[in-house]
Simulated scan of single mutants.
Amino acid sequence: EQAETEKSAPAKAEEKETAPPQEKKDVEAGVSLAPESREKKRVEPGRPARPPLQESEARVKASPVARRIAAELGVNLASVNGTGPEGRVTETDVRAAAKPKPEKAGVSPAPKQPTRLPLQGEGARINLSGMRKGIAERLVQSKAPVPHFYLNIDIDASPLMEARAELKSAGEDADTSKITVNDFVLKAAVMAAVRVPKVNASFDNDAIVQYADVDLGIAVAIEDGLLTPVIRAAQNKSLREISELAKDLANRARNKRMKPEEFQGGSFTVSNLGGMGIDSFSAIINPPQGFILAVGKINKMPVIDNCDQVVVGHRMSIWMSCDHRVIDGALGAVYLKELRHLLENPALLLV
Score class of each variant (00 low, 15 high):
E162Q: 14
E162A: 15
A163P: 08
A163T: 09
A163I: 06
R164E: 06
R164Y: 07
A165H: 13
A165R: 15
E166G: 10
E166S: 13
E166W: 13
L167T: 00
L167V: 04
K168R: 15
S169T: 04
S169M: 06
G171N: 10
G171I: 12
E172I: 02
E172Y: 00
E172N: 08
E172K: 14
E172A: 10
D173C: 00
D173V: 09
D173R: 10
D173G: 15
A174I: 05
A174E: 14
D175V: 09
D175S: 14
D175L: 15
D175K: 14
T176G: 03
T176H: 04
T176I: 13
T176K: 09
S177D: 13
S177R: 04
S177N: 12
K178C: 02
K178L: 03
K178M: 01
I179A: 04
I179W: 10
I179P: 05
I179V: 11
T180S: 15
V181N: 03
V181M: 10
V181E: 05
V181K: 02
N182D: 14
N182F: 03
N182I: 11
F184K: 02
F184D: 04
V185G: 10
V185E: 08
L186Y: 11
L186H: 06
L186K: 00
L186C: 06
K187R: 11
K187D: 01
A188L: 04
A188Y: 04
A188K: 02
A188I: 02
A188D: 02
A189P: 02
A189E: 03
A189N: 03
A189I: 03
V190W: 12
V190I: 08
M191T: 09
M191V: 09
M191E: 14
M191G: 07
M191S: 11
A192K: 02
A192P: 03
A193D: 05
A193P: 11
V194P: 05
V194A: 06
V194T: 14
R195F: 01
R195A: 13
R195K: 15
R195I: 08
R195T: 11
V196Y: 09
V196P: 04
V196Q: 07
V196F: 07
P197L: 12
P197A: 05
P197Y: 08
P197S: 06
P197V: 05
